[in-house]
Every structure is written in C-alpha cells, then in structure tokens.
C-alpha cells in the first residue's frame, strides 16, 4: 500500500506516489492554472508532492488516503498560486483591500455535496472530473462511453444547474 510505503520508506514511497499520481496531479493543477507558463505548473506540482511527503504521518485513510489528500492539496496549491499571480500583477503601491479568506462552513459543504448529488449521474461525475480533476473531454467520453460533444453539453448544463442550486442556498455569489 502506498501510504504504508510512504511512511516506512519515505524516499521510495514518494517516488511511487509520483509514479502513480503524476498525471492526476498535473491535470488538476493545469486545469486551475489555465494560461499559466508551464514552469509555474511544474513548480506547483512539485510543491504538491513535497507536501504529500511532509504530511505522510497525517494523511487519514478514512478520509480517502493519498488519492483524496493529493487531489485537495493539488487544487489548493494551484488556487494559491493563481491568487498570488493575480495579486502580483497589481502594483504594491496601490492599496487594495485584502479579500477575506472564506472558510467553508459545514452546512455549505453539505449544500455543495447535496447539490452535486442532486445533479444525478453521470452529470455530477462529469462535472468533477472535468473541472476539478482536469480530465479532458475525450478521456471522460471514453470512460463513460459517450460522445465528446455530449460530455461538453452536460458539463455546461450541470454547472448552470449547480450554480442555481447553490445560489438558492446563498452559497455562491
């Protein structure tokens, strides 16, 4: 088991984790950093694996183990980098109010989960695969046995539905 290996033999473990999840991590980061230079994406992916390495003693199996942990970290590090770049594009002499960091309350997480479930299958899956995991339309279409344009249509509609549901609940916007 990867987590076991990572804890027992961290150097070998992290190699194995990279071997197994490099593509996934890359896809997640790239999806969030569209338009960024490749060097930035590579640095971000490196940061993610280093964080996995550092956190090997804290990764919780019941929360999904390495897979889920890595997915969350990849997305968060990409978001951090995205915001850092946006912030850096402004000039420091300009006073800008800092955007308060949003802490997602438990009820909001539940609302998000419920809204996703309400989309039904395979729309929820398509949405997360495409916009979180960064899977290409082609890959999703092949996995689900559907046409590519169908995937794109469902993804767009799914997003609209999801947003509507979340806005109803005061979560988004």
């Amino acid at each position: 088991m990867l987590l076991e290996l990572l804890r027992k033999k961290p150097d070998k473990g992290i190699r194995a984790v990279m071997e197994a999840y490099m593509g996934l991590c890359w896809a997640i980061v790239r999806a969030r950093l569209t338009g960024f230079p490749q060097e930035d994406i590579e640095e971000c992916v490196s940061d993610v694996f280093l964080e996995v390495y550092r956190s090997r003693g804290k990764i919780e199996l019941e929360k999904g183990g390495i897979q889920a942990f890595l997915a969350v970290v990849a997305r968060r590090r990409a978001i951090d980098r995205y915001h850092a770049a946006k912030k850096a594009e402004t000039f420091p002499l300009e006073e800008e109010p800092a955007e308060p960091e949003r802490q997602l309350a438990l009820e909001d997480r539940n609302a998000l989960r419920d809204a996703l479930h309400a989309l039904g299958e395979p729309d929820g899956k398509i949405l997360v695969w495409k916009y979180y995991y960064g899977l290409a339309t082609k890959e999703i279409a092949a996995a689900l046995g559907m046409k590519e344009n169908t995937i794109d249509q469902r993804a767009r509609r799914g997003l609209q539905k999801l947003r509507a549901k979340l806005e109803e609940g005061g979560f988004y916007g």
Partner: peptide, 11 residues
C-alpha cells in the same frame, strides 16, 4: 466553487 470540495466527496 469546486475549490471547496472536501476529501470525502473527491473520493
């Protein structure tokens, strides 16, 4: 908004 998906949902 998917930024906020927790680990359990991701899995």
């Amino acid at each position: 908004f998917l930024d906020d998906l927790p680990e359990e949902e991701l899995l």
